[in-house]
């Protein structure tokens, strides 16, 4: 039998290939060989998904490929999940409440971000599009979110982003969550101007920013 490193390599490759069956089989092998599932996820599935993200950035992969790879990871994670729970609570990458803001029916960019965040180990609660401000806050409270991610593709809906921040302030909850913004009309300057905690121009940027926000959040705790 080959070593652990080889197993991780095959897991990463199965993700890159979008091979759902292989991901499931390799996850089962992780359990059978009594390999630490956390390490297997980090070194196998997550590493594979990072490569998928890189390939998407250069358009070697397209959105359906990314979706296929993410679905393969989900299938493998389904096998590992009970063992993770058995070994004790793994520190999650973070919990994100994500949605396109009120009045805006565009969700493609938000969906890509959601897919990439999930693949990076975040727990994502996707509220869909046309989401009222209060729904973001209520959901964040319900799931004890770390991050609220808000997308807008219209300039008229982007204008609600500062309102979300001030509503959080008004409710005394601004410090409780990190707020990330993104979408076609949103610029880094705008994000800074309204006092958002993070901004991502691309889905990969958004994942990176979410990781940074989580690091900072944990450092504060």
């Amino acid at each position: 039998m080959d070593g652990k490193e080889d197993l991780f390599e095959r897991m990463a490759q199965a993700v890159i290939d979008g091979d759902r069956e292989a991901c499931v089989a390799l996850a089962e092998e992780v359990i059978k060989r009594d390999v630490d599932p956390f390490e297997a996820i980090e070194q196998g599935f997550t590493r594979g998904m990072t490569t998928v993200g890189d390939k998407f950035a250069t358009l070697e992969y397209y959105l359906p490929d990314v979706m296929r790879c993410a679905a393969a990871v989900d299938a493998g994670m389904g096998v590992l999940q009970p063992y993770i729970l058995k070994q004790g609570e793994r520190e999650s990458a973070g919990t994100v409440v994500l949605g396109t803001i009120k009045g805006d029916l565009h969700d493609l960019g938000k969906n890509i971000v959601g897919t990439m965040l999930r693949a990076a180990g975040f727990e994502v609660h996707d509220l869909g599009c046309d989401t009222p401000l209060r729904t973001f806050i209520d959901k964040a409270g319900e799931v004890d979110a770390d991050i609220i991610g808000v997308s807008a593709i219209l300039t008229t809906t982007m204008a609600y982003m500062p309102d979300l921040l001030s509503l959080l302030d008004e409710l005394g909850q601004r410090g409780r969550y990190r707020v990330m913004v993104g979408g076609a009309p949103v610029t880094p300057e705008y994000a800074a101007e309204i006092g958002a905690d993070g901004y991502g121009e691309t889905a990969a940027d958004a994942v990176e920013m979410a990781k940074q926000l989580m690091q900072a959040r944990r450092a504060e705790q």
Partner: peptide
């Protein structure tokens, strides 16, 4: 500022 689905959007 102009916000979607508000009276101000009509004015805008």
């Amino acid at each position: 500022p102009i916000k979607a689905d508000t009276p101000q959007e009509v004015e805008a």
